[in-house]
Structures are given as structure tokens and as C-alpha cells.
Design a binder for these strands. Structure first.
Lengths: 190, 190
DNA sequence: CGTATTTCTTAATCTTGATTCATTTTTTGA
DNA sequence: TCAAAAAATGAATCAAGATTAAGAAATACG
């Protein structure tokens, strides 16, 4: 649904009818099946993805050849490899659909054009970017102030329904420990 | 130097003479002595700080009653507790000068006003915010893909002159390990 | 359906970096 | 300039979580 995006934007800035049309004219809606890749390593990331329905994950393969998830995006979140997008250099990340999803994508050049035509989008993305930064800082704070076990329990209490949506090994990866350790603490809980 | 700020902004967006005047009319320059606090826990963070000279650190006291540094800011970096600034809730952080520094500060309401009068600042802060987010994500990537020792060596090779400026225990804190462990790997190096 | 693949669990052993406590070195400021 | 405080080092012991290696339980899908 195209409206999901512009409705989200309207929560932060005013949009006129013409703005909505302009935005909708440059984005594309994609239905992506579970396990589909939107980005793979060695490719330059050229798009921003807005999750209108479903769930995406961002991950890379670490030295021990395990998947390391660094981000999830669910409804109303943006997903991209901002590093690659900004620098134009090849990514080392995968972006993959965790569930069958609907994604609204916009290319970087189209977004730049939009900024000229709809200046209030600068503000929208400033605010969205700021929130992402705050969340990211909060995450670093948690990494440095809680043990893995504490962080697992904390995450559980904050996002009880999200953890139902994804396999446990993905949450273990996101939280930075092994599935085995996760089983251990879950067993303890009872 | 007031110019440090506007010169930095000009690297990202165009500013007219009048914009520069508007900006300079709402910011304040402060000379802060080493160890001075710009923010303390239980206070609401009301300002953004631009480091024109010197170095600031952002830290909190963790459960084990140790200082946990989450950010440094040197010349041309912004520093704030964005979480407290945005929510208006009390901070749990300290912002402290690591060296005698010069800081250009702007209050949140004044910044909001500025956004109305100088719209290109929206773009500037969007870009700056985006870079901060990318750096933050990169840091999370490093945390999850390197051992503490690797991260120390990596940080050393990336910022050899920065590590000269700060006490080692602060770097240990920032990297998330103890000063004792840091001594150990430094001793090993020879 | 029923088999193959994916996901989750258990347990034994091993490693990295924390903790504790003592000592040395460096820096600060009266 | 020298005493006090701050910062860095060292070594012994300890703990959280990784690794390895099975096996069990879910889920997907032909």
C-alpha cells in the first residue's frame, strides 16, 4: 500500500496533495517473498526500503562465517545500507526478507530529486534519521551495560510480540550470542 | 571561534550572509575547562554542543559503578544527549570536557526557530545526523565482529593521534573493557 | 501425508576478558 | 618542588559465554 509511506511521513511533517503525488510517482512497491534478497555483498546499495508490511533483516558474514544480524526492520521502518548508499561503495551486507513482505523502495537519485521538490522531506528524514541514531546509541548503551543474558530478558520484555515473529537463532544473532547460549538461558527461565 | 561552526555547515549546504548572522545570533560560545560538566544525570539536556576546539566525552555510570563512555566529540563534531533532548526527559548521562575546550552551544528551541528561518539547516542536520548514524552502526558492526583485543588494535590504527589525546582508561571504557586488560594487550604488543 | 530441511536443545570442555589486590609511574596543583 | 591524587601495570583467580558434537523437535513442501 502506497499510502503507508505517505501516512507515515504525515505523522512528522505536512504534505500537500501534490507532494503525495510526487512521492508516489518515484517510489515502487514490491511484494517480496520470504528469503528474497534485496541487497547482497559486493553490490552497491542504491535504494532505501520502507517496510510497509512484513520484516527485513540486515546482516553480514563474520570471520567465523556466521551470520551477524545488525538490524531488523518491521512495518514503518526504513532499511538500507546507508554506508554503501552514501559512499557509492560496494556493500558487505545482505538485506533479506524474513517474512513475505511489502516494501516501498526509492532510489538515492530519486530521493535527491524529491528533496528539491518537497523540501519538507528534508525535515522528515532528519527526524527519522535522528530517531534511528538515538535507537542505535541506546543499543550501544545496552551492549555495554548489560550481560548477554540481561539483554535477552530486556529485549523480551520490550518486544514480546516481535520475538514471536522471528526464529530464535536470528534473535541470538542480533543480540550477539550463540543459539546454544540462548537455549541455555531459556531453559533456566522455568 | 564562531566561524568554525558556520564553516562546517558550509561544507554541506549553502549559507548566505544573512543566514550566518542568524545562526551566530542564537548560539553561544563557551570556554570550558577540562573536567567541566556540560550535562549531569537527572538534568534535562537542553542544548546541542558543537566542539570548536578540544574534546568532550559522553558517559554514564553502569551497575558496577564504573564510568562507561559511549561517545567522544572532537573538533567539528556535535555532542548531546539526543534522547533526553528529544523526549524532554532527564538524562542519565554526563557530558564532560576531557581537555580545555571551546564549545558552541545552541538550545533546542532556538534550533527549532532556526530551522524555520534557515531551511537549509534541515538538510545540514539531516546529513550530519545520517553520518552519526552510519558511524554508530559501524561501531555496532565492530563490536559484533571483533574481539576486544582486535577492536583495540583496529581503533589504534585508525586514530593514532586521537589516542594520544586521552587517558588510556578512557579508551578502555569506550571500547568496553577494563584498564587492566588494556595493559595486558599493550604489554603483549612488544 | 511423510520425508527433508530448518530450528532448537543439551552437555562437556575451552577461552576471553573480568575481578581483586597490590605496586609503580605519571600528573597535578598548593 | 614535592606531596597527593590520578593513571597505568602486573599477576592470580574466576566467570560468562563460545565451541563442539550430538540429537530432538518443528516446519515446509513435493
Amino acid at each position: 500500500m502506497l499510502n503507508n509511506l505517505t501516512n507515515h511521513i504525515k505523522k512528522f511533517v505536512e504534505l500537500h496533495g501534490i507532494d503525495v503525488e510526487l512521492i508516489n510517482s518515484v517510489v515502487t512497491v514490491k511484494q517480496v517473498k520470504k528469503k528474497t534478497f534485496l541487497l547482497e555483498p559486493d553490490h552497491i546499495c542504491r535504494d532505501l526500503y520502507f517496510v510497509s508490511k512484513g520484516c527485513l533483516r540486515l546482516y553480514f558474514i563474520n570471520k567465523k562465517l556466521n551470520e551477524q544480524i545488525t538490524q531488523f526492520a518491521i512495518e514503518n521502518w526504513w532499511m538500507s545500507d546507508h554506508g554503501s548508499l552514501e559512499s557509492g561503495k560496494p556493500s558487505s551486507y545482505f538485506i533479506q526478507a524474513v517474512e513475505n513482505s511489502e516494501v516501498i523502495s526509492i532510489s538515492k537519485p530519486k530521493l535527491e530529486e524529491l528533496f528539491e521538490k518537497v523540501p519538507s522531506l528534508e525535515r522528515y528524514f532528519r527526524i527519522v534519521q535522528q530517531r534511528a541514531f538515538i535507537a542505535s546509541q541506546k543499543r550501544i548503551e545496552y551492549i555495554y551495560s548489560m550481560s548477554d543474558e540481561e539483554r535477552y530478558r530486556h529485549f523480551n520484555s520490550l518486544f514480546p510480540d516481535f520475538i514471536q515473529r522471528i526464529p530464535q537463532y536470528m534473535l541470538a544473532s542480533y543480540l550477539g550470542f550463540t543459539p546454544q547460549f540462548m537455549s541455555k538461558i531459556r531453559a533456566k527461565k522455568v
